[in-house]
Design a protein around this nucleic acid. Structure first.
Lengths: 234, 234
DNA sequence: TGCAAGAACCTGTCAGACAGGATGCCGCGA
DNA sequence: TCGCGGCATCCTGTCTGACAGGTTCTTGCA
């Protein structure tokens, strides 16, 4: 089977025409696309068909729709991947453990890159989140927010938008499972260990030590995976 | 800004309602959704609105649309991620080198998992593709197809659909850049090395040696990245 | 020359309609 | 009783026309 064979239908024709238009005219994020009426006329299809095509592209974050304004080329964003993964989880096509394996793999590389490429401001921000996690000990939701921001900041510091995209896509799922992991760390000791690991990682990034940073990230995920397994998730 | 705040509009309302419907009723891939007319009536919106919402979900491969039949819950698929990455590449938001770094990271882990988890049939299939690559030496497009199938088969053998999803998403881009890498390997020696590495990797998977398999995968990507850089891509 | 009001443009949503594919039921025949 | 074919029904794909409300551009006035 040739994968490049698109389904028939006028809507898919329009989707193809618009993507070709973007590529052919070398449009950049923010550039405006033709109006619905113009596309409708040019491609000899009705406006509802054009609208469905534009909605499809908007769903994938290839374009952005704005009421009253014309559609514009969009910046890549983890939104669609995020929803896709949540769907996979809801329909039991994937499980949390598999996601954690992917995160462990990717974030291990990310944190090494971040240790090498981070600016001083980024190192400071990452440290700030690690410290804030420890400072919010009695407030789990706040710890989680700083935890998520910690990982997102590291992804950005890796200077690779593809990594940042993937990490961002996992954020929604993490929001749904974070509390489970936290609660399964029953002892005060286990909770301190997790906070300490984050702080040590931030310090390794600041020190520019990719090996140590990657080691701590792997440690963190091993420990997190175990915590989720203890809680009966799999 | 709270990321969970969806844009207003009836279409987005319907998208939310349908996703909730899937989750709440514990629908599995293949299960049928309510008809457009039913949704239209239940949510008090017009049918075009319902259609745009369903198209959006179909674009993300959360549901599948079939003419004449009702929409069904879909299996997760790399389609949307694939298009998103191609868009990012076209609009210069990401570059090929960054993608190769991600692939190197992920596929290094995948191949180690595959070495541990592969069935005998899978090991045989992977070996088959590696051998076919060598056998098709004079026919670059055929080498490429077996190369892609080689990586896809390894991803499947890793028994983690999330890994398979990501690897699959890179396939389209690889199709666009593979020939550049091949042509940049001007010497017969360099081409042989690439084919040999694949074969050795397949053997390591068959032997159940994750460390060696991962080492060869890293080697392969280092070499590929260098080939692309030599060709002036970045 | 600068600005503000209005015209022109554009998207969001609705109603109604018809063609064609898919499904399922029901009755007929073996 | 069981199998099968045909027809009624359901459902999607597409079109036309219309109107409200937000945005952008232009023109004319100060």
């Amino acid at each position: 089977m040739i994968p490049g064979t698109p389904k028939p239908g006028r809507v898919n024709d329009v989707i193809g025409a618009v993507t070709r238009h973007i590529r052919h005219k070398d449009l950049m994020p923010g550039d405006r696309l033709p109006s619905e009426a113009a596309l409708s006329k040019e491609l000899s299809v009705s406006r509802p068909v054009v609208r469905e095509a534009l909605r499809s592209l908007a769903a994938m974050r290839i374009i952005e729709l704005n009421t009253g304004r014309r559609a514009t080329v969009a910046q890549i964003d983890h939104g669609p991947l995020s929803l896709l993964l949540e769907h996979g989880l809801n329909t039991e096509q994937i499980n949390v453990q598999q996601i954690y394996d992917v995160r462990r793999t990717i974030e291990g590389r990310i944190v090494a890159l971040a240790a090498l490429r981070r600016t001083d401001e980024e190192a400071e921000a990452i440290l700030g989140h690690a410290r804030a996690m420890r400072g919010a000990e009695a407030d789990p939701p706040r710890i989680m927010e700083h935890d998520l921001a910690f990982h997102a900041a590291i992804a950005r510091a890796s200077r690779n938008p593809v990594f940042a995209l993937i990490v961002g896509a996992f954020e929604g799922i993490t929001r749904q499972t974070w509390a489970i992991g936290w609660r399964s760390r029953v002892s005060e000791d286990a909770r301190q260990t997790m906070l300490d690991t984050h702080l040590a990682m931030a310090e390794a990034i600041e020190a520019g030590d990719p090996v140590e940073a990657a080691r701590l990230m792997a440690l963190h995920f091993d420990e997190s995976t175990r915590a989720l397994l203890d809680a009966g998730l799999a």
